[in-house]
Simulated scan of single mutants.
Amino acid sequence: MAAGRLLALAVGAIALVACGDEQRAAEPGSGVTGVVHLGPQCPVESRDDACEDQPAAGVTVIVSEQLPGEAYAAGTEVARTTTAADGSFTVELEPGEYVVTAEAGMSCELMDVRVSAGSYADMDIPCDTGIR
């Protein structure tokens, strides 16, 4: 009889652990996703010949902690990734405030972003080619 109770307790414990794993797996992640754009692409633009920015493929995206009370001020780096062929990127992050930039062209803007639990903030990072 004691062996039967012990077996029932063990099966119940395994069932609880398994349910806990399923619940964690169902929770959505959080972070930032976006596209790095590189432009201008032409020295002269006109109405008839617009020269649109191009996606920056294979460039490094850097995510840093945002310094408290300082807009566009990057603190400690917390993550980095490389853009895909279409210039897109995704970085999984804990909720918080970050500064995101990329290494492309002559310079890229520093972009502030707030990441909320269970969602991905969407952003574009413009980078300057230096073409004038």
Rank of each mutant, 00 (worst) to 15 (best):
M1I: 08
A2T: 14
A2C: 08
A3P: 08
A3G: 11
R5W: 13
L6C: 13
L6E: 13
L7S: 15
L9V: 13
L9N: 09
A10Y: 03
V11K: 06
G12S: 11
A13T: 13
A13Y: 00
A15I: 09
C19A: 12
C19P: 00
E22K: 12
Q23L: 14
R24Y: 09
A26D: 10
E27S: 14
P28Y: 10
G29V: 01
G31M: 03
V32S: 08
T33M: 10
T33A: 13
G34Y: 02
G34K: 01
V35Q: 08
V35E: 10
V36C: 00
V36P: 03
V36L: 01
V36K: 00
G39Q: 05
P40S: 11
P43K: 06
E45I: 11
E45T: 14
S46D: 07
S46F: 02
D48H: 09
D49E: 04
D49Y: 09
C51T: 05
E52Y: 06
D53R: 13
D53T: 15
Q54L: 10
P55M: 06
P55T: 08
P55G: 07
A56I: 07
A56L: 03
A57S: 12
A57E: 12
G58I: 03
V59H: 00
V59T: 11
V61L: 00
V61A: 04
S64P: 06
E65H: 13
L67A: 12
P68G: 10
A71W: 10
Y72M: 11
Y72P: 04
A73W: 09
A73T: 11
A74T: 06
A74G: 07
T76D: 11
E77N: 12
E77V: 14
R80Q: 12
T81H: 01
A84D: 15
D86T: 01
S88E: 02
S88Y: 09
F89T: 05
F89E: 05
T90A: 12
E92P: 04
E92I: 06
E92Y: 05
G96D: 04
G96N: 03
T101Y: 05
A102C: 09
E103L: 10
G105M: 02
M106G: 09
M106A: 15
S107N: 07
C108F: 01
E109F: 08
E109H: 00
L110H: 07
M111Y: 06
M111A: 06
R114Q: 14
R114P: 02
V115S: 07
A117R: 13
G118S: 08
S119N: 10
Y120A: 07
I125L: 02
P126H: 01
P126W: 02
I131D: 07
